Deep mutational scan, measured.
Amino acid sequence: TGQSYENMVTEIMSMGYEREQVIAALRASFNNPDRAVEYLLMGIP
């Protein structure tokens, strides 16, 4: 849902990432938050 997506974005942003980076990582990871954080740390393949 939209609210849980926003919660994911906010939670990952709280780790120090910009909203645009978080959204790009979530898009690349098909909204998998664990993989999105991994992409933010290691780069999107």
Score class of each variant (00 low, 15 high):
42 M>D: 15
44 I>D: 15
43 G>N: 15
18 E>G: 11
30 F>K: 14
17 Y>T: 01
27 R>W: 03
24 A>C: 09
35 R>I: 08
37 V>T: 11
32 N>M: 11
27 R>I: 04
8 M>P: 02
44 I>H: 13
12 I>T: 02
18 E>V: 06
13 M>T: 09
23 I>H: 10
24 A>P: 06
2 G>T: 14
38 E>W: 07
2 G>R: 05
34 D>Q: 14
18 E>K: 08
8 M>Y: 09
41 L>C: 09
2 G>L: 08
8 M>C: 07
33 P>Q: 11
26 L>K: 01
39 Y>V: 08
10 T>H: 12
26 L>A: 01
1 T>L: 10
4 S>P: 06
5 Y>R: 06
34 D>R: 14
41 L>W: 05
35 R>W: 08
25 A>Q: 01
40 L>I: 02
9 V>W: 00
21 Q>A: 12
20 E>H: 10
14 S>G: 15
6 E>V: 04
30 F>A: 15
38 E>H: 04
37 V>E: 04
24 A>E: 13
24 A>F: 04
45 P>C: 03
10 T>M: 10
4 S>E: 12
40 L>K: 00
2 G>Y: 13
36 A>S: 03
5 Y>C: 09
10 T>V: 10
28 A>Y: 07
8 M>G: 02
11 E>G: 02
40 L>W: 00
35 R>L: 12
29 S>M: 02
12 I>C: 03
31 N>E: 08
5 Y>G: 04
32 N>F: 02
39 Y>D: 11
30 F>Q: 14
22 V>D: 00
18 E>C: 09
8 M>I: 14
32 N>V: 10
25 A>N: 02
26 L>Y: 03
30 F>V: 14
18 E>N: 12
34 D>G: 12
39 Y>Q: 13
22 V>I: 05
30 F>T: 15
43 G>C: 06
21 Q>G: 06
33 P>M: 10
35 R>G: 12
18 E>T: 12
44 I>L: 13
18 E>Y: 04
18 E>H: 11
39 Y>G: 07
29 S>Q: 04
5 Y>H: 08
28 A>L: 09
28 A>W: 07
3 Q>R: 14
27 R>G: 11
19 R>Q: 06
17 Y>H: 05
31 N>Y: 03
41 L>A: 15
27 R>A: 13
9 V>K: 01
28 A>V: 09
23 I>K: 12
18 E>L: 06
43 G>W: 07
4 S>T: 13
13 M>G: 05
18 E>Q: 11
10 T>W: 06
31 N>F: 08
36 A>P: 02
10 T>S: 10
32 N>D: 14
26 L>Q: 00
31 N>P: 02
4 S>Y: 07
25 A>G: 04
22 V>W: 00
44 I>R: 15
34 D>A: 11
44 I>M: 14
44 I>K: 14
6 E>L: 04
30 F>N: 15
10 T>A: 09
11 E>T: 08
7 N>T: 07
37 V>C: 10
8 M>W: 05
41 L>N: 03
20 E>S: 10
10 T>Y: 05
12 I>M: 08
41 L>R: 15
37 V>G: 04
29 S>L: 00
13 M>R: 02
21 Q>V: 09
4 S>C: 04
18 E>M: 08
2 G>P: 13
43 G>S: 12
27 R>V: 08
42 M>K: 15
40 L>C: 03
8 M>N: 10
32 N>Y: 05
6 E>P: 03
